[in-house]
Write a protein that binds this DNA or RNA. Structure first.
Lengths: 149, 149
DNA sequence: CTAAAATATAGTACACTATAACACTATACT
DNA sequence: AGTATAGTGTTATAGTGTACTATATTTTAG
């Protein structure tokens, strides 16, 4: 377990948005108002966001959206790799590494709820013989430096 | 990513049960009928089991249990490290490595739903400086050798 | 042995998370 | 314009999990 001291920059919401637009464009999909708004809410949040919180935040500008509305946007965005789902929190976070797909690895502070994203190195020692990995969920929960006091 | 060909034995439900009893004993906790029954249902299942399926399987022998009943048993068992929760499936599996705590790593076939448990080596390259990991969720989804055909 | 403390069970009610199914609208393309 | 496709709105419901209260059962200490 090696501590990591080199800098990991964090993209601004504006940068994230620009990337999202571009990826969407390259894939020939439409970055609609709704999708943009949902993405922005996630990108501007300080931590992982829950689907029903997004739902609340869409009101009243987008009428009274129902769950499928937000889940469709979430599916779309995660299908393009623009956001990740944090499985153990039932929450969503904007991808900080938007250039190209990668295996995301999260470090989540249980005190301040901050989340750090890394790209996992696929040094998995002990894959069952012949197992073809399609998707990985890697989430670490603990206490961050700031909260250790 | 190194394929792993050495043998990983799988414990029988009987062995799992014996270990569970022992761990429970060592901790001075009570392995009650309810807890034993829930543990057995999980240990005898071929794959991860969902809480509400357990609930169904407890009937009618244990009356008409309500969700809190099964969740309490699940909390107890996972608190002792006897079962693990598979986060992305909302499901539970008996721990195959019951001697001592470890970081579990799962390989789950999306076709046959079989699950292989490994002990994760904590070679995490890039932990944020000062982050103290308390709990890790590591789950790989894909296609197993048998289903690759 | 008995009372107090700790542990375990039961149940109600509700909160939170997610999807199926169907109707409708907007956009893209010849 | 007409058709195919993609996107959105809505209703209803399924699936997952917990807060809270009450009761019963050990275990421990006096």
């Amino acid at each position: 377990m090696t501590a990591c001291k080199h800098e990991h920059e964090h993209k601004t919401p504006e940068q994230l948005l620009a990337t999202a637009r571009q990826v969407c464009d390259e894939q020939g999909r439409r970055f609609t108002k709704l999708r943009e708004h949902v993405f922005n809410l996630i990108a501007r949040s300080t931590g992982p966001v829950k689907a029903y919180d997004l739902l609340d935040q869409l009101r009243p500008e987008f009428g009274s959206p129902k769950p499928p509305t937000v889940y469709r946007a979430l599916d779309f965005l995660s299908g393009l790799g623009l956001i990740h789902r944090v499985e153990a929190l039932n929450a969503y976070i904007a991808c900080d590494h938007s250039q190209g797909r990668h295996i995301a690895e999260f470090f989540i502070c249980e005190t301040c709820e901050n989340l750090e994203e890394r790209s996992a190195n696929d040094h998995i020692d002990c894959v069952p013989d012949g197992f073809d990995i399609r998707r990985s969920v890697i989430e670490h929960y603990g206490i961050c430096k700031n909260c250790a006091a």
